[in-house]
Design a binder for these strands. Structure first.
Lengths: 217, 217, 217, 217
DNA sequence: AATGAATGAGTCTTCATTCAT
DNA sequence: AATGAATGAAGACTCATTCAT
């Protein structure tokens, strides 16, 4: 009966600061971030649906029910992970697009940033990459699609400016170009190993080479 | 998944012929293919885990238990879909690599073939693309990983031959190049609409343009 | 995610015939009615919330999950019990109010019918009587409140007609009179024992005596 | 309910004095009464089982765990509410039965007192009225049943005395008469609104009219 | 007097699978 | 080839209660 007590008084103890990592205040949220990190990794590697709430709790060393002291639901954990990720990402790329002088420098900046992001928060990226079926079919995750479109706008802005300024070839469709770059880069999260011998910087350089000059000799 | 899988009394009715065509056997094959097509589409769009056996049965107009007359398990359906897909794919690209004269023509052929495949069997491709977590973690699906490596071998052969022959730039790492191309192309399955106005041929041409000459003017 | 798949294809196998008891067709719904009877008794005696789905299944000799082959949810069971009950009740009292000649005869008929109902389906009556907190607070059960109002209309019609015709005292408020009678009668379900020595007819006669002539000598 | 109840180290702080009044003790009593009032209202309106300890705590502006500083358990709260209520009730009606001169005056006094009680402590009455399943099935609440029997004895004494004295009709069974009156009156708690336009005195007068003289003109 | 983190047992519900008919 | 009833294991979530601080 009334299975969903929507937005109960229990409320969300969600932190508002988007900073995340850094040594924030003395608050009680340390545990929260820790649990979220565990969840992100498991969601990313096993898949959201395949990860049980008990998997996460086991890994954290508590009982599954205890997770609900920190989060309203399993879905709420995913939401929070993705919201943080998309928010940070959008902020960063807007910064880059604004700061760089030429469209070409901006594009390179965006690409380097993408690889850094994959290196820094591989699980969030993988989640975003692998759970597209879930993310696009459930209205609860509409914010992800919206943020994606915002990201696309920034990239398209750079690409179009570059085509206009003569930095980039004008015979390529910017929309297709964006998808081409985006898919090639974000997909690396599936095989890139942050602790492997291939540095993200190296991969970025090689990818930039290919993107700049093409494959043909 | 499938707690007791091996050696069921019922045995495996799995067909080995990838042809799938005309009314050869006892007559049950048509229904079988039909059910498999339904399953593939649902697996691809909702995700394998999120798709229930009853979803498939509902769509087929039968009860979920009745599906077990045709297949041993839900997993068996996925296995069959992927086995058919990987088998066909491998056959085709080997053909292409062998038939084409130059490495460059071979690479173009492989790329065109990829887009055609996405156009023809988008659900199988999406499955292969989206269920990586499942496919790599479950030993039952090791054959997929193996076939992927076989595919990679063919592509790498072409790329290396092309670098040796002076078709392609020699300063690019063939492994990274392969992944770059592969990821960019196969990812299109997520947004490519077979019935949309963008023809697969058009996308292929644009992608080839970018790959050949790069982005810079 | 989408925890409530509202009105799924699974649908309700609910029978439309309101007859209930009688030896209906050969259909497969026999089990359904049986399970509903078990549920009604337990809901009534232990309370809806205190009755677990496993209590019901245990009593029926199946596993709790198997109940979901017959009903969509625990709540759906309660809904069906109450819907049947209220539907039948309303049909009967409308019949009586229409058929009887005088308001006084109609009132007596309604009262006798109430006691018969308590005798026949004590659990449904008890449910209706005891779960008022649940029934009035949850929108899913608004139909019960609505049916109650319809019942009230019939009784009020009789009472007002009787006051106008001189059958009943005119100095009493019909609304209060209705509640007075209704509450006194329906409450008997809490202590009336269908298999006890006090026959429902006897109780009805005594109550009618009190209602007709009052307590004073 | 309360899996390990007896012999908690903490001991029972249960107060025995039913007075509840002025700031006598250490000062913690005010909060205690306040919490009990909140609990009573919620138990009455939502039902005991449906009310969670956190519901009560939320309403009181504290965390659920903090409630256990004041009460041993959720059940202890209900026990205390009911014990106070039944104790007071019994005291009052014994007073009335003793004080009034004639059985008829005594009966009227009891009835007026009932309506006053409903007006004064509607939640306790509702609890007593609605939680019969719980109250009769759990041995912890046997004291309620016992007090009810004591109440019944007082009423029956008055009714029998009245029948003997010729105040009341002698052809009515006193037991049934008692239940009739009791159920009709206490049930009003379900629809009576202390702050509505219908005063409890008015309802009492109308009910007395019906009870005294009956419905027939 | 209250917090906040956790427990442990239980609740409803889902779902792949089986099997007699 | 399919039905319909059932299994059994698991899953997300709830909630009274405890306890160190």
């Amino acid at each position: 009966m009334a299975s969903k007590n929507e937005a109960t008084a229990r409320g969300s103890r969600r932190r508002t600061d988007a900073a995340g990592g850094a040594g924030a205040g003395g608050g009680g949220s340390a545990r929260r971030a820790q649990l979220l990190a565990i969840a992100a990794e498991m969601f990313a590697t096993r898949g959201y649906t395949q990860t049980t709430v008990r998997d996460i709790a086991d890994e954290a060393g508590i009982l599954s029910g205890s997770l609900y002291h920190h989060f309203d639901s399993k879905e709420a954990m995913l939401t929070e992970i993705l919201r943080d990720f998309m928010g940070n990402l959008l902020g960063e790329i807007r910064e880059i697009a604004k700061a760089e002088e030429s469209p070409r420098a901006a594009l390179d900046g965006l690409i380097y940033n993408s690889f850094e992001t994959i290196h820094r928060v591989p699980f969030a990226v993988a989640l975003y990459q692998n759970e597209s079926a879930l993310l696009t079919s459930t209205p609860e995750f509409a914010f992800v699609t919206k943020a994606s479109l915002d990201v696309e706008k920034v990239w398209l802005g750079v690409l179009k400016a570059g085509a206009g300024a003569g930095d980039f070839r004008a015979d390529l469709d910017p929309g297709l170009t964006y998808r081409f770059i985006r898919d090639a880069i974000w997909s690396t999260v599936r095989w890139y190993n942050p602790r492997g011998r291939l540095q993200h910087r190296t991969v970025a350089d090689q990818y930039l080479e290919m993107l700049h000059g093409g494959l043909l000799a």
